[in-house]
């Protein structure tokens, strides 16, 4: 674990010495604000909650998290530092987890910078703090799942553009699986409702929505963590087969 942490620290420092971190955070916050207030109708709702804020997270992350994850491994490939890292006395698992943690912590920093949103609703009304808290937890877990997937696509290619696009498409599928347009198509095709439910339950939106409403269900945790573990494990397989 110590080694994973050393790698995470190095990686995290790497975000902040380059403009990547600042550009990302500014764009993230501006878009968050724009969608919440302009598209989400924050004021028109006349409701002291952050629903109009959280509802955009699956979509915004889809665009932004792959941008963070795309460089995780393709950059190491390109710079040749992968050879350096994997000839040091660290296990691949330590390296993968370290890099993932760095990205996740970075996303956490970006997410925490949206806290003024919470202060805003608190100033304007008396929101229920429970759903806000669980919403943040859900958002953080979802960011982790997206990041793990982006890390996986990044391990597959040394081309960052390919990594970005692939991660975006996979995340898009995960979002769309639960949306009515998709589930309706399945229903129209005469799919049994069990199948439709299953497809919908694969969607991040399905699991994130209950968290926005203040429900902390162990199944949602299992869902996000199994996505993360699966992607990280597959990353290790891909990295190993690349060297074989």
């Amino acid at each position: 674990m110590r080694n994973a942490w050393i790698i995470a620290k190095r990686e995290l420092a790497g975000y902040f010495v380059s403009p990547v971190a600042y550009v990302f955070i500014v764009i993230f916050l501006v878009l968050m604000g724009f969608f919440t207030f302009m598209m989400g109708g924050f004021f028109e709702r006349n409701d002291a909650s952050l629903l109009s804020f959280f509802v955009w997270h699956p979509w915004l992350y889809m665009l932004l998290v792959p941008a963070v994850g795309m460089r995780l491994w393709s950059e190491e490939h390109r710079m040749g530092t992968l050879e350096l890292l994997f000839t040091m006395p660290v296990t691949p698992a330590q390296a993968i987890i370290g890099k993932f943690l760095a990205g996740w912590l970075f996303l956490l920093v970006a997410l925490l910078l949206t806290l003024p949103m919470v202060f805003t609703v608190q100033y304007l009304g008396e929101p229920d703090i429970g759903p806000i808290l669980t919403g943040y937890i859900g958002s953080f877990l979802m960011a982790g799942a997206y990041l793990a997937i982006s890390g996986l696509t990044s391990a597959c290619t040394r081309n960052q553009v390919i990594s970005f696009i692939t991660a975006l498409v996979v995340c898009l599928l995960l979002v769309l699986a639960g949306y009515p347009p998709v589930t309706n198509i399945l229903l129209k095709w005469g799919a049994p409702s069990a199948v439709v439910d299953f497809a919908a339950s694969l969607s991040v939106v399905f699991h994130f929505e209950s968290m926005q409403r203040g429900v902390l269900d162990i199944r949602d945790f299992i869902y996000f963590f199994s996505l993360i573990v699966f992607a990280i494990f597959t990353t290790s397989v891909v990295l190993k087969s690349k060297r074989a």
């Binding site: 190095r10 420092a13 010495v17 000839t87 040091m88």
Partner: peptide, 29 residues
């Protein structure tokens, strides 16, 4: 690997780090 030091072809290193930070990282690892 603990017993080995390795200079790969083309001598890769993390370009966004300072010399000192890079060596500290390697020493920690």
């Amino acid at each position: 690997k603990r017993l080995m030091g390795y200079l790969p072809e083309n001598a890769p290193s993390y370009p966004d780090m300072s010399v000192e930070a890079f060596l500290h990282f390697c020493a920690a690892i």
